[in-house]
Structure formats: structure tokens, C-alpha cells
Amino acid sequence: MAKKFLFVNRKAPYGTIYALESLEVVLISAAFEQVVSLVFMDDGVYELTKGQKTDAIGMKNFSPTYSALGDYEIKNIYIEKESLDARGLTLDDLQHLVWEDEDDDWAEKDSIHLVSSKELATIMADQEVIITF
């Protein structure tokens, strides 16, 4: 019986290691055939911003890895609208993440869902395991 796992990402990508080590857990979780969803909220929305360049800070740019999430059967990535608004960001500032639907001739479908804080509460209430980073 698969459980519903939700990984909540709340930190900016390079100031601390939480974002990178969260991504490592998420990728491992895919091997366990669970129902995995992700949330990006607070400074966590910066993790998905486009065009990250890390040369000047001497750290590895791990943001391209997010585009592989669809291949790991991760189809639901929730972005909290209030967090984007508060930072002057829109969905256009974030990577466009998709998954391929094998039941629909491998059509590419959006993985990213913009949700309000209130909707997020409902989504969280529906989960069985929530891990926050």
C-alpha cells in the first residue's frame, strides 16, 4: 500500500544545505513507489527560480535536477501563491516542470500547481507523511 508523502521546501537554495539534501530524499523516495508530492513555500520558492548561476559562490548549481522530477513520477508540485507574491515573483520566474502521461500518448502535463495558503492546508491535511525542510 503506497502512502502519500509530502515534502515541504521552505528554505532558499544555497544559504543552507536543506534544499539540496531535501532533493536527495525526494529522489530516493521515488524508488519506493509511494505517492510523492512537493510543496515550495516561503523562501523555498527560490529553489525553482530559472537561470540560477552559482559560479561566483563556488557551489554546485543543483537546480537542473528539478526538471527530472517528472521522470520520477512526481506529478504534483505545489507553489504557495502568497510566498511568490511576497517576493515579487510569478510562475514565469520559475522552471516549467512537466511529467509525461503514458495514458494520454505521453502528453506533457504541468507538474506545477499554484495554490493559496488555504488550499495548501487542505492538501497537507490529506497527506500521510509530511517531511519539512
Binding site: K3, F5, E24, I28, A31, F32, Q34, V129, I131, T132
Partner: peptide, 20 residues
Amino acid sequence: SGLGQLIEAGIEADRLVVFG
């Protein structure tokens, strides 16, 4: 051991409690 042990713990336990 590996990260799989964390996912397995989430699957097997009634509650996973995160301290962070």
C-alpha cells in the same frame, strides 16, 4: 545506512515525527 531507511520509516510507522 542510506536515505531509503528514512522513507521506509515513513511507510512503516504510524507517525513520522521530524525534529528540526
